[in-house]
Amino acid sequence: MKNPNRIFKNKRGVEQEVYFVIIESVLVLVVIIAMLQWVSSIAKDEDFEKLILSRDIALTMNTLQNIPGDIYYNYSATNIELQKFNYKFKDNLISILDPGKPLKISYPFSRNLLISSNIPITIEKKDSIEFEINNNILTIK
């Protein structure tokens, strides 16, 4: 049986070291490609956009319902295309739905029950969502 310590000490050992370096380089390449793929998948992923929209719309609802008096607010986003998703307002939840995908992302908002509203409602693929409170009636359209 060959002594494993001898691999670095003769010509064959040098050859084996070269193999190690090649294997190492291949491994490094595989890791780099995997990481790039992963980052690219995150960049393409729409779940983060849904996460932002759910929170942002929920906080908008919280704010608008506690404003004294009437208000009209047109919600639009500059970096996200709102028309990609459907927006379902039901009970105390805003859910962002992607028509082609089963996964939805929801976030709770508070309701001011002293104001009547057209909730539950689903806003489908619009580039902006309009909120209006007029005479204690909240309308989302």
Binding site: N66, N92, P108, S110, R111, N112, L113
Partner: peptide, 8 residues
């Protein structure tokens, strides 16, 4: 809790 800031 039950009217103006109602979280369910």
């Amino acid at each position: 809790e039950s009217n103006s800031i109602f979280y369910g």
